[in-house]
Amino acid sequence: MATTSGVNPNSLVDEIARLALEFQEGFESRFGYPPDEHLVSKAQDDDTSIAPGNLLAHATAKDLLRFYDIVDEISLPDLDNGYFIHPRSVTFNGEGAGHPTEVRGYRSEEICTFGSEGGGALYALGLSTGHVYRLTGGELIGSAYSVEPSGFHTAAPSLWGFLEFLRDRLKKSLMGD
């Protein structure tokens, strides 16, 4: 079933999984050293992680909830600086431990931190906009991430747009870009 943006979540996730495997299998011959493990881990029926109430209260979070019905985590450690979509249990239960629930400073908004990259950036879903933000160089104060304009970037207009970005980065890397 497609989302309102026309994306078929299952097909997109399957394509990322296929590309991640292809990327990993050809990595050593292209770069001369073995890759770390690249994976798209499917959601397990026995995962009892429950989305926090602040997430359930926002219509913009429905795509993240749907994503975690399909996938537990994505790990692409050798793609660029590495991209990591945290396991459902970390995203839903990780508040405080490096997982801010709001951004302050340049912009104030409730967020759900769901990913990171090897360079230290965090990826968060803006709960009022549905945009995916890339947060860098800020300071975690309690559950808030304080950030200046230079550390706040819209990475994608939606979660599915972010996943399409990851798919496209895998495709470009496989073509040698």
Score class of each variant (00 low, 15 high):
residue 66 R to N: 10
residue 63 D to G: 02
residue 103 V to M: 00
residue 120 G to A: 12
residue 119 G to I: 12
residue 150 S to W: 00
residue 146 S to M: 10
residue 96 G to L: 01
residue 49 S to E: 13
residue 98 G to K: 04
residue 116 S to Q: 11
residue 165 F to T: 13
residue 46 D to S: 15
residue 142 G to Y: 09
residue 21 L to C: 14
residue 40 V to G: 07
residue 92 F to Q: 13
residue 59 A to M: 08
residue 28 E to M: 02
residue 155 A to E: 15
residue 134 R to I: 00
residue 52 P to C: 04
residue 40 V to F: 04
residue 136 T to W: 08
residue 124 A to H: 03
residue 4 T to E: 13
residue 120 G to I: 03
residue 149 P to S: 08
residue 169 R to E: 12
residue 57 A to T: 12
residue 171 K to F: 06
residue 141 I to A: 08
residue 128 S to W: 07
residue 37 E to G: 10
residue 112 C to G: 02
residue 107 R to E: 11
residue 120 G to W: 07
residue 15 E to N: 07
residue 81 N to M: 08
residue 90 V to C: 05
residue 161 G to A: 03
residue 33 Y to C: 01
residue 108 S to Y: 07
residue 67 F to Y: 11
residue 75 S to G: 05
residue 49 S to T: 09
residue 27 F to S: 06
residue 15 E to L: 05
residue 28 E to A: 10
residue 147 V to C: 04
residue 61 A to I: 14
residue 24 Q to R: 15
residue 10 N to H: 08
residue 94 G to N: 12
residue 166 L to G: 02
residue 45 D to I: 09
residue 110 E to V: 07
residue 38 H to T: 15
residue 156 A to W: 14
residue 150 S to L: 01
residue 68 Y to R: 05
residue 164 E to L: 10
residue 46 D to C: 13
residue 22 E to T: 07
residue 147 V to M: 14
residue 141 I to H: 01
residue 175 M to R: 11
residue 163 L to N: 11
residue 92 F to M: 10
residue 92 F to C: 13
residue 20 A to W: 04
residue 23 F to G: 00
residue 38 H to C: 14
residue 87 P to V: 06
residue 34 P to A: 01
residue 4 T to D: 12
residue 143 S to N: 15
residue 72 D to Q: 07
residue 31 F to Y: 14
residue 149 P to F: 00
residue 123 Y to H: 02
residue 22 E to V: 05
residue 70 I to T: 08
residue 13 V to A: 10
residue 44 Q to I: 09
residue 69 D to A: 06
residue 66 R to G: 15
residue 110 E to D: 15
residue 90 V to N: 12
residue 98 G to I: 01
residue 131 H to T: 12
residue 3 T to E: 10
residue 127 L to H: 05
residue 33 Y to E: 10
residue 162 F to M: 07
residue 72 D to F: 02
residue 78 D to T: 11
residue 42 K to D: 02
residue 104 R to C: 01
residue 14 D to S: 13
residue 103 V to A: 02
residue 168 D to E: 15
residue 109 E to I: 05
residue 48 T to C: 08
residue 59 A to D: 14
residue 10 N to P: 00
residue 41 S to A: 12
residue 62 K to H: 06
residue 169 R to T: 02
residue 114 F to G: 08
